[in-house]
Amino acid sequence: WIARINAAVRAYGLNYSTFINGLKKAGIELDRKILADMAVRDPQAFEQVVNKVKEALQV
Results as ranks from 00 to 15, higher is better:
Ala39Lys: 02
Ile2Val: 08
Asp42Pro: 01
Tyr16Phe: 07
Val49Asp: 00
Met38Asn: 02
Thr18Ile: 07
Trp1Pro: 09
Val9Glu: 01
Met38His: 03
Ala7Asn: 12
Ala11Gln: 12
Asn15Thr: 13
Ile28Val: 09
Ala8Leu: 11
Ala39Asp: 04
Phe46Glu: 00
Lys33Phe: 11
Leu57Ile: 13
Ala26Gln: 07
Leu57Gly: 05
Glu47Cys: 03
Gln48Val: 12
Arg32Glu: 15
Glu29Asn: 15
Val50Tyr: 02
Tyr16Ala: 11
Gln58Cys: 03
Ala39Trp: 08
Gln48Ser: 10
Ile5Tyr: 02
Glu47His: 06
Pro43Lys: 04
Lys33Ile: 12
Ala45Glu: 14
Lys52Thr: 08
Gln48Lys: 14
Ala26Met: 07
Ala3Thr: 06
Lys24Phe: 13
Lys24Gly: 13
Pro43Leu: 05
Phe46Pro: 00
Lys52Cys: 05
Gly13Asn: 13
Tyr12Glu: 02
Val40Ser: 10
Lys54Ala: 07
Ala8Val: 05
Thr18Ala: 07
Ala3Leu: 05
Val53Ile: 05
Gly22Cys: 02
Arg32Lys: 15
Asn51Cys: 03
Ala39His: 05
Val9Gly: 01
Ala3Gly: 10
Asn51Ala: 08
Val50Ile: 10
Leu30Lys: 07
Gly13Lys: 05
Ala45Trp: 14
Lys54Pro: 00
Val40Pro: 02
Asp31Phe: 04
Ala7Ile: 12
Tyr12Thr: 02
Leu30Gln: 12
Phe46His: 00
Pro43Asn: 02
Tyr16Ile: 06
Phe19Glu: 00
Val49Gly: 01
Ile2Asp: 04
Ala45His: 08
Ala11Cys: 03
Arg4Met: 15
Ala8Ser: 05
Gln44Asn: 11
Pro43Ser: 04
Arg32Trp: 13
Arg41Gly: 14
Gly27Val: 05
Asn51Val: 13
Ala56Asn: 07
Asp37His: 11
Tyr16Glu: 03
Lys52Pro: 01
Leu35Glu: 00
Gln48Glu: 09
Ile5Asp: 00
Asn21Val: 12
Arg4Asp: 15
Lys33Leu: 12
Arg32Val: 15
Val59Thr: 13
Ser17Ile: 13
Lys25Val: 11
Asp31His: 11
Lys52Asp: 11
Lys24Ala: 10
Asn51Ile: 14
Gln58Pro: 12
Leu30Tyr: 11
Ala36His: 10
Glu47Trp: 04
Asn15Pro: 06
Phe19Asn: 00
Thr18Asp: 11
Leu30Ile: 15
Lys24His: 12
Tyr16Cys: 03
Leu23Arg: 00
Glu29Thr: 14
Arg32Cys: 07
Lys52Ser: 13
Asp37Lys: 08
Asn6Arg: 09
Ala39Asn: 03
Ala3Tyr: 05
Glu55Gly: 10
Trp1Ile: 15
Val50Trp: 01
Gly22His: 03
Arg41Ile: 14
Val49His: 05
Tyr16Val: 06
Ile2Met: 04
Phe19Leu: 04
Ile2Phe: 08
Tyr12Cys: 02
Lys54Cys: 02
Ile5Phe: 06
Leu14Asp: 01
Ala45Ser: 10
Arg10Glu: 15
Ala39Cys: 02
Val9Leu: 14
Val49Trp: 02
Ala3Met: 04
Arg4Glu: 15
Gln44Met: 11
Leu23Tyr: 06
Leu35Asn: 01
Ala26Trp: 03
Arg41Glu: 15
Arg4Asn: 12
Leu57Asn: 07
Ala45Ile: 08
Ile28Glu: 05
Ile34Asn: 12
Trp1Ala: 15
Leu14Tyr: 05
Glu47Arg: 07
Ala11Trp: 04
Pro43Ala: 05
Gln44Trp: 14
Arg32His: 15
Arg4Cys: 06
